[in-house]
Amino acid sequence: MKLTVNGQAHEVDVEANMPLLWVLRDELGLTGTKYGCGIAQCGACTVHMNGMAVRSCQLPVAAAQGKITTIEGLSGSDDAATTANLHRVQQAWIEHQVPQCGYCQSGQLMAAASLLSSNPSPSDADIDAAMAGNLCRCGTYTRIRAAIHTAAKAGA
């Protein structure tokens, strides 16, 4: 099975119906993408396929034939070492100190980045609609909203 993740081509020897999530985590070692429910209810596993947010726990690897981007590749830079190179949602997340435990945050960030690429200046209601699939048991929602607004301004 061939797939392209964060601009890199990979060949993996797995069943066609293995969800992309587990290929990323266990086969490719990209553990930034998380398992939370396995049934498309929590959003912890959100990645991009051709720029669109998808639930990797529901996407068989055989169907993951577009350009896959995970949290590790969101900045688009090999050097995530400096904050300046991060994606603007990541910068806004740091500015607003969004994460608590952090476990849901890769998914939140991927969903937020995808929202901003289709809607550069979302309202609170747009944010709520786009982010409602991403559960956060720590309750970081008010800061997520604020950070998305900040990131939107940074992109304007």
Partner: peptide
């Protein structure tokens, strides 16, 4: 702990 939690490194 926050920077690592925004880049999937935590």
């Amino acid at each position: 702990d926050i920077p690592a939690k925004t880049i999937g490194a935590a």
